[in-house]
């Protein structure tokens, strides 16, 4: 490693030196994720007060809202690393983008599922064409498109670059889609129902939600690091250091 901070950035931008770093960091983030999620879930289920209008079923928003936040945030992060990979031609950034996609898709799916679970007792139906749910659905399509494109291209370099172009196009489109859908839904059904629940959110509710969001964030980092390590091993399998690494483990 190095004396100056600048150099160490480049040091860790090579897959070979990032691999052990990711291995060291990953358990810490995983532990943080477990602790934060446990605390967050405790607050959401036992500390936060029962909602006057919605009863106990509102508690699902402690998972739904952070998952929705993460799903959108991860798409931006994915777009960012894709852009870095495209501009600076760094392999590791493209690998990170590839590794982020499944986690992002997972959170999108969780947001949709919990939205449906929340919708049944609250609205009386599993699915409502609510602005948030609809844009989450389209976001899920974008994630699936990204993963499908990368899976369909055999040449790794091309898969990285093509995925990056798509992710960047998607990043420009996500806000446009979001606001289009929002306008569309207010036009069609008015502001009769909204996902944000109670008009004034109790402090403990907000706290629980924030802790859950942090926990999801840590989980995303841990899962991405684990996946990046797999991607690195797979792509660098013909290099000597991977052979040595695998030899050391078996």
């Amino acid at each position: 490693m190095s004396k100056s901070g600048r150099f160490s950035w480049f040091y860790f931008s090579s897959p070979q030196s990032f691999y052990p770093l990711a291995g060291t960091l990953q358990p810490w983030f995983a532990a943080l994720a477990v602790i934060l999620c446990a605390v967050g879930l405790y607050i959401s289920f036992f500390v936060a007060p029962t909602d006057a209008q919605q009863g106990e079923s509102y508690r699902i928003i402690f998972i739904h809202v952070p998952a929705a936040w993460m799903s959108m945030f991860l798409y931006l992060v994915m777009g960012f690393w894709s852009g870095v990979g495209l501009v600076f031609n760094t392999r590791l950034s493209s690998m990170v983008a590839t590794a982020l996609a499944p986690t992002g898709a997972l959170f999108t799916f969780i947001a949709l599922w919990t939205g449906a679970l929340w919708g049944k007792p609250t609205w009386g139906t599993w699915w409502v064409w609510d602005a948030r749910l609809t844009s989450e659905l389209i976001l899920l399509f974008l994630y699936i498109g990204f993963m499908a494109l990368q899976a369909a291209i055999d040449d790794q370099r091309r898969a990285d670059k093509a995925g990056a172009v798509l992710a960047l196009v998607g990043v420009i489109n996500v806000p446009i889609i979001y606001f289009s859908v929002k306008w569309w839904s207010t036009l069609h059904q008015g502001a009769s129902v909204s996902m944000t629940g109670a008009p004034t959110m109790a402090k403990t509710m907000l706290l629980g939600m924030l802790i859950m969001a942090l926990g999801f964030w840590m989980y995303s980092i841990a899962a991405t690091l684990a996946r990046v390590r797999c991607v690195i091993l797979e792509r660098e399998r013909h290099t000597d250091w991977v052979a040595a690494e695998i030899g050391a483990q078996t």
Binding site: I138, F141, L142, I144, G145, A148, G170, N173, I177, S180
Partner: peptide
């Protein structure tokens, strides 16, 4: 799969 979601707006 790629294009239709982008056509939404």
């Amino acid at each position: 799969l790629l294009v239709l979601p982008l056509y939404v707006p």
